[in-house]
Design a protein around this nucleic acid. Structure first.
Length: 654
RNA sequence: GCCACCAUAGCUCAGCUGGAAGAGCACCUCACUUGUAAUGAGGUGGUCGCGGGUUCGAUUCCUGCUGGUGGCUCCA
């Protein structure tokens, strides 16, 4: 028998008879490795652990706890679920069932949607099948044979996929995986048997369109999670619970920040405390505007429909716009969904020279966009909102410098809030675009160059740009791991064209400026939602609605407390006195629950000595300090704009 | 918009198969004058989201609508 040479990731190589399997090689290396080996990679391609090797190759063993191993595990769990569903509901047709981050799903066509009880039944059946420990066997066959196989089984969706593989990818064969009576079209790899699947849970059902197209049949999607160990499964379930606790909608209610009312669906009402956060954020951005030479403007809420025709919004965006009319007024108006057209008027209100550029115009104007009912939710997707919006009018040569500066501003700002996990994405020319391809290519190059010069990592989102230009988006995750776009930098060659914007170049020629749409926080509403979840409601001192709560122990201490309140208030600190007829323990509890960063306990000792007993949120008693020291400490901390750090180290800095 | 689920006091939630709406917290009153995460007693408070239907009788069953939640689609 021929010998083949297998090279391992550490560079060492081994001789084996041809036909050896990765599992056998793993066993020769060590029993521990063989036990954890769930799949393998041959020359970089994922294969089953039992796939015979016939040629020299690079081999890597995929263990169950690696990312790739868990992916295999989750994929196999989705097959297990499909098998259980087919046993329980013989008429069900299975569509697709991939692994996803931390779990899996399977899309299934059934007459009756699944209920929670069905989920429990399916999960139970899954455990039974797993117990039986069916071998998972791969089989490669011609497309025609497989179409026959799935035709017999009435699996229409599998046939459609097979036809696509044949017609679009030009393959004439494909693989299926068998476990017991169940078979699924699949590239693999899979766990060697169903017995590997032990630590899983089905989570929820949802509707999902076949192939993600809303014109297609809606299928039932069951989501589940699956892990190498019970411990990891339990940790994940706990994580999901914790995420619920820091859901911004829950915090918004508990901390009295905002509310929603059916009279204006998906439009937040910011309460006094929420408005403080909102305005502090705006204030912070205004400070940046001073530093970076922006001019803030205020523009109208409703504008003549003609304008929106001219800007292209009516044609491209009318599904998202609100319209208004008034008896006696022959004109029709639209509520602005974006600020950009209004800024072109300000640009064009005087003759511009190259010396005026870049001209940076900022606007916190309220925007209204109609969002389909199912799309809205909490503060992250609303119909009424404001952005920290600005438009930069500049020459083509100035774009790169502006973009570099913007990326810097945006990332510095996110750093202030300690968003560790920011993804940067460049979206390129979509199918529907306007302008010249050369201009697009150049613009895309500029965006890439700007990121590369600074060494930022980014992904390319092919064809996802706006119809008027490519963009860079900045994306962070919410408590439930959903991605949300915050900041954005968008190049626009169309708007200056449509509104005939010009500037006089040094040559004396009239030239067309470029417009850069940009936002740092994005929508203030969304940003507040994400920030609340990111901080679990423990906002940094400068943003927090009540910074300091004075807690007099008895009525006798009220005068001193109010005296102090005035003193702190006059210094610009948001301070409250809890004068309720309660024990100090109850007042402390209330302040802790409200996540108020600092508490000042006022009793006989403090009145006598002119001190405040300071207590810090979640950390506890800090000790008695002279009033002026407490005041200075708070002022410094507000000025520093630091995030809250809930460690014991904090009291050492007092 | 689509699929599923949810809607009971200001908040969080009970309310079995249809038979006179409940708790805790909050709020108000009174007592207590309190030292680092909930003092006690009493009290106010609900068209059971809204509209139809079934029924002798509907918070409960059916149905339409509204709003919300999880997804899908779409997007800051």
């Amino acid at each position: 028998m021929d010998e083949i040479k297998v090279t391992l990731p550490d560079g060492s190589s081994q001789e084996h008879p041809a036909g050896v399997t990765p599992l056998e090689i793993a066993q020769s290396i060590g029993s521990r490795l063989a036990k954890d080996a769930v799949a393998a990679k041959i020359n970089g391609e994922q294969v089953d652990i039992t796939r015979p090797i016939h040629e020299d190759c690079d081999l890597e063993i995929i263990t169950i706890d690696s990312d790739e191993g868990q992916e295999v595990l989750r994929h196999s769990t989705s097959h297990l679920m499909a098998q259980a569903v087919e046993q329980l509901y013989p008429d069900a047709k299975i569509a697709i069932g991939p692994p996803i981050e931390k779990g899996f799903y399977y899309d299934i066509d059934v007459d009756e949607p699944f209920s929670d009880e069905d989920l429990a039944k399916i999960e139970e059946r899954m455990r039974e099948i797993a117990e039986k420990d069916y071998d998972v066997k791969r089989e490669e066959k011609s497309i025609e044979e497989l179409i026959g196989l799935f035709d017999e089984r009435n699996e229409d969706y599998k046939i459609e996929i097979l036809e696509q593989i044949r017609d679009e990818e030009g393959d004439d064969s494909a693989s299926v995986y068998w476990q017991g009576e169940f078979v699924d079209l699949c590239r693999g790899p899979h766990t060697p048997s169903t017995g590997w699947l032990k630590h899983f849970n089905l989570l929820n059902v949802a509707g999902a369109y076949w192939r993600g197209d809303e014109n297609n049949q809606m299928l039932q999607r069951i989501y589940g999670t699956s892990w190498p160990s019970e411990k990891e499964l339990q940790e994940h379930l706990e994580h999901l619970e914790e995420a619920k606790a820091r859901d911004h909608r829950k915090l918004g209610k508990e901390l009295d920040l905002f509310s929603f009312h059916k009279e204006s669906p998906a439009a937040p009402f910011f309460h006094p405390k929420g408005a403080i956060i909102y305005n502090e954020l705006v204030g912070h951005i205004r400070d940046l505007y001073k530093e970076y030479n922006y001019s803030e403007v205020i523009t109208p809420q409703i504008l003549d429909l003609d304008l929106w025709h001219r800007s292209g919004h009516y044609e491209n965006y009318k599904e998202n716009m609100y319209f208004t009319s008034q008896k006696g007024d022959e004109k029709e108006f639209a509520v602005k969904p974006m600020n950009c057209p209004t800024h072109t008027f300000i640009y064009a209100s005087q003759k511009r020279s190259y010396r005026d550029l870049p001209l940076r115009i900022a606007d916190f104007g309220r925007l209204h966009r109609y969002e389909r009912t199912g799309a809205t939710g909490g503060l992250t997707r609303v119909r009424s909102f404001a952005q920290d919006d600005a438009h930069i009018f500049c020459t083509i040569d100035q774009i790169e410098e502006e973009v570099v500066e913007l990326v810097e501003i945006i990332l510095n700002t996110y750093e202030l809030f300690e968003f560790g996990d920011v993804e940067i994405e460049i979206s390129t020319r979509p199918e529907k675009y306007i302008g010249e391809i050369e201009t697009w290519d150049r613009a895309e190059d500029i965006l890439e160059a700007a990121l590369e010069h600074k060494g930022y990592e980014y992904n390319i989102n092919e064809g996802d740009g706006a119809f008027y230009g490519p963009k860079i988006d900045f994306i962070v995750k919410d408590a439930l791991d959903r991605d949300w776009q915050l900041g954005t930098v968008q190049l626009d060659f169309m708007m200056p064209e449509r509104f005939d914007l010009t500037y006089t170049a040094s040559s004396g020629d009239e030239e067309r400026p470029v417009m850069v749409h940009r936002a740092v926080l994005g929508s203030l509403e969304r940003f507040i939602g994400i920030l609340l979840e990111h901080t679990a409601g423990e906002l940094p001192l400068w943003l927090t609605p009540v910074q300091f709560s004075l807690l007099p122990i008895t009525d006798d201490h009220h005068d001193y407390a109010y005296e102090l309140k005035d003193k702190f208030f006059d210094a610009g600190i948001r301070v409250e006195v809890d004068a309720r007829n309660e024990k100090v323990g109850a007042k402390i509890r209330e302040a802790e629950v409200q996540k108020i960063p600092y508490m000042g306990i006022i009793g006989d000792r403090e009145v006598e000595n002119g001190t405040i007993s300071l207590r810090q949120h979640t950390i506890g008693d800090v000790g008695a300090l002279p009033v002026s020291e407490v005041l200075d400490k708070l002022l410094v901390k507000i000025e520093e704009k630091q995030m809250r750090i809930n460690t014991k180290q904090e009291d050492q800095t007092v």
